[in-house]
């Protein structure tokens, strides 16, 4: 097997690093731009990784925050992740991930476990419908004014009020679910 060392020439090393550095630079620049768009919420933002920024957003401000990114054409909504922090914490989070190049901006909406509710972003981003349906059926988050509130993945005969991705939904050893123990 040809085992030529990859990095034969120092100039190549430098060039490669420069390219990588360039990319990181671009990601940082993009994040700076997003931060500017997301004032005043961005005051609380954090950088968990060099190319990622987390911005906590109150549910009431979600539409405004999404609009700020959307109007400026900062990236696209790549996914909405639901996170259950557990019954003891009494809270959940809905994470809206926007991607542009290598940069990822996550709008984090903290929600109470009981009566968790976010506004729909479909008015701005119609294709968010699938993500919102999934968030709703898996976590029990109400997405107000979402154009299609029907289930996406769960069967019609899945019991109401049972949210499989919540921490207190426990699967029985033989599969299925305990339903009864949810809540």
């Amino acid at each position: 097997m040809s085992t030529e060392p990859l990095l034969q020439k120092p100039e190549l090393v430098l060039a490669l690093s420069q390219l990588d550095r360039c990319r990181l630079c671009m990601a940082e620049t993009l994040l700076e731009a997003a931060k500017a768009l997301l004032q005043p919420w961005a005051a609380e933002s954090t950088l968990p990784e060099p190319n990622r920024m987390d911005v906590p957003i109150p549910a009431a401000d979600l539409l405004a925050a999404v609009k700020a990114l959307h109007d400026a054409r900062w990236g696209y909504l790549s996914a909405i992740t639901g996170l259950d922090l557990g019954p003891e914490a009494g809270a959940m989070e809905a994470l809206y991930h926007f991607c542009m190049g290598a940069a990822v901006v996550t709008l984090r909406v903290r929600l109470p476990r009981d009566e968790a509710s976010v506004p729909s972003v479909c008015g701005l981003i119609p294709s968010a419908s699938f993500f919102e349906r999934e968030l709703s059926e898996m976590f029990g988050v109400t997405v107000t004014d979402t154009p299609d509130p029907s289930r996406l993945f769960l069967p019609d005969d899945w019991p109401d009020g049972v949210y499989p991705l919540r921490k207190d939904f426990v699967m029985s050893p033989t599969g299925g679910g305990n339903g009864a123990q949810a809540e």
Partner: peptide
């Protein structure tokens, strides 16, 4: 208790 549909139906 062995099948999903039974346990879940009882829960609802």
């Amino acid at each position: 208790g062995h099948r999903a549909e039974n346990t879940d139906e009882e829960a609802a």
